[in-house]
């Protein structure tokens, strides 16, 4: 079984974000890491290949500046190889252009390690969180997609998944190949051993440009996004109110506050 798993590399989410005053897009600088959200997808991919009795996991990533640090995290977890699409023209790409690039990379992965049976992504990224890239990717690859998945069982040409819903979950069946998106908490991502981290250094990590994938610069980046930021303003701030230390009677403060709000 060949699983392609999307791995977004993002600036350390603990560092405060800011917007580029010129382009008004998110500044992506500093040390890059694998988006935590994707560690669940990598783990899911590894487990599925193991359950299938073997195969390969290919990590797929798009990043503007030859960034591979975050992808190394996926390789250290156990992915067999990686394809990273990097090109200066990718800067400013929106979800649809990103999906276009990822689709070309998944197709390339299929040419390399055999046809891709399943594409795994996170439900939404930590820094972009549009949540539309995965379904756009599925549409471009002409694949069925099951989103918000918490459990996946592959059985030959079929996949059965539990999909989270507002009320609970749905059991959904789909043919393979397909794409699934997973949310945090569905599996427990493994911590790579020191040995695995060292071994990852020698795993194939192909960095390719747009032209290598037959894509045109006009389809991606700021040009492909076909949207612009018109304004950036500070939101109205919500101010804090009274803060009281609990001296054993703080619950009474809450009761009288609820009374004043006529909740009770």
């Amino acid at each position: 079984m060949h699983v392609a798993v999307c791995v977004k590399q993002i600036p350390d989410p603990a560092a405060p974000g800011r917007l580029d005053p010129e382009t008004k897009t998110l500044v992506r600088e500093g040390k890059f890491v694998m988006d935590d959200s994707d560690s669940y997808g990598v783990e899911m991919a590894l487990q599925l290949v193991q359950a299938a009795g073997g195969g390969a996991v290919t990590a797929i990533s798009m990043a503007p500046n030859n960034e591979i640090k975050g992808v190394k995290d996926a390789l250290a977890m156990g992915a067999d190889s990686a394809i990273v699409v990097s090109d200066p023209a990718l800067k400013g790409s929106d979800a649809l252009s990103t999906a276009r690039v990822l689709a070309a990379a998944v197709t390339r992965a299929g040419d390399g390690a055999g046809p891709v049976d399943l594409v795994v992504t996170a439900t939404e990224s930590t820094d972009g969180y549009t949540g539309t890239t995965p379904v756009q990717l599925a549409a471009l690859l002409d694949l069925p997609a099951v989103t918000f998945v918490k459990k996946v069982v592959c059985d030959g040409s079929k996949v059965t998944v539990e999909r989270q819903t507002d009320e609970g979950y749905d059991e959904v069946e789909s043919t393979l190949p397909a794409l699934v998106t997973v949310t945090a908490g569905v599996v427990e991502p493994r911590y790579p051993s020191f040995k695995a981290i060292m071994a990852a250094k020698n795993k194939p990590c192909h960095v390719v440009g747009l032209a290598d994938l037959g894509l045109d610069a006009s389809q991606v980046g700021f040009a492909g996004a076909r949207q612009e930021i018109t304004e950036v303003l500070a939101a109205e701030e919500r101010k804090g109110g009274d803060i009281v230390e609990d001296d054993g009677d703080a619950h009474l403060r809450i009761v009288s506050y609820l009374e004043s709000l006529k909740v009770i």
Partner: peptide
């Protein structure tokens, strides 16, 4: 092909 997903059961 993308239309090949069916909901076989719903759990509330």
């Amino acid at each position: 092909r993308p239309g090949a997903t069916t909901v076989v059961a719903r759990h509330a």
